[in-house]
Write a protein that binds this DNA or RNA. Structure first.
Length: 249
DNA sequence: GAGAATGAAAA
DNA sequence: TTTTCATTCTC
């Protein structure tokens, strides 16, 4: 990945040289490091691709876009005491400026008007999501596969039918199917699940709890009764018949 | 986003 | 035991 990254940025430095520069900065990184410092002489030698390379490396730590900032002061005598910082923009542009203390070093006041922003924010490159970032959909169960396979068939035979009606029809059909047919779809579901786990060994079903983000309405008593009147299912929801089972989002 | 079905899986 | 979420697509 690193070499690939360095090649991608096409710096005047070789990939190994870029890695070497990064290693000198990497020592500053601890779990809570948000900003790192760079010596002016180092930064002056960097070309833009090299800066992007370093920014990219640091981004993978802070998981945010980062930018180079220079506090840009030179003493009257010409002594260069410029300091460079690399970190997320919020650390440099917070209203009224803010104190940044890097790894126990001197505090640095970064006023938006004073700190010279040397390079534009380096946006997070769009990289293919890692396996852990991919949202893996839940494997379908036997009925879902059965419904999926027959959905188009039912729809073409009854063009005006609604999806809810298709679900009702196929729900009844499913309950009337022979054991062989149901077993066939059960095996298919197991195959799909096996393939999913092979591709994503860490996959685990993680349903959100009712207080997380959105609540789904519980299956209404009436709809369940309707279904039961045609094809009873082993309902596992207590039939409270309160009529107020619909929950707001 | 709800709804209509079923069922696996988590809490 | 209860809830979510896989599928599909209309409202």
């Amino acid at each position: 990945m690193s070499e690939e990254l360095a090649n991608h940025y096409r710096s005047i430095y070789s990939p190994s040289e870029l890695e070497e520069i990064w290693r000198t900065l990497e020592v500053q990184i601890h779990p809570f490091t948000q900003v790192i410092t760079l010596e002016d002489k180092v930064v002056r030698r960097l070309d833009e691709p090299a800066k992007r390379f370093l920014a990219h490396k640091f981004m993978s730590h802070v998981m945010q876009s980062v930018m180079f900032v220079c506090d840009g002061t030179s003493t009257p005598g010409g002594t260069n005491n410029k300091r460079w910082f690399l970190g997320p923009p919020k650390f440099f542009t917070a209203g009224g400026g803010m104190v940044i203390k890097v790894n126990g070093g001197d505090a640095f006041w970064a006023f938006p008007s004073e700190a010279r922003i040397q390079t534009a924010t380096v946006p997070m490159p769009i990289l293919p999501p890692t396996n852990s970032q991919v949202r893996v959909p839940r494997p379908p169960n036997a009925y879902i596969l059965y419904r999926k396979e027959r959905h188009t068939l039912v729809k073409s035979a009854n063009p005006d039918i609604t999806n809810n009606e298709i679900s009702q029809i196929l729900g009844r059909a499913w309950n009337m199917e022979s054991k062989e047919v149901r077993d066939h779809y059960k095996e298919m579901a197991e195959d799909v699940k096996r393939a999913l786990l092979e591709k994503h060994p860490d996959y685990q079903y993680r349903p959100r709890r009712p207080n997380e983000k959105r609540k789904r309405s519980r299956r209404s008593t009436r709809s369940r009764d309707d279904a039961n009147s045609h094809s009873p299912r082993n309902g596992n929801i207590a039939d409270t018949s309160t009529g107020d089972e619909m929950e707001a989002i």
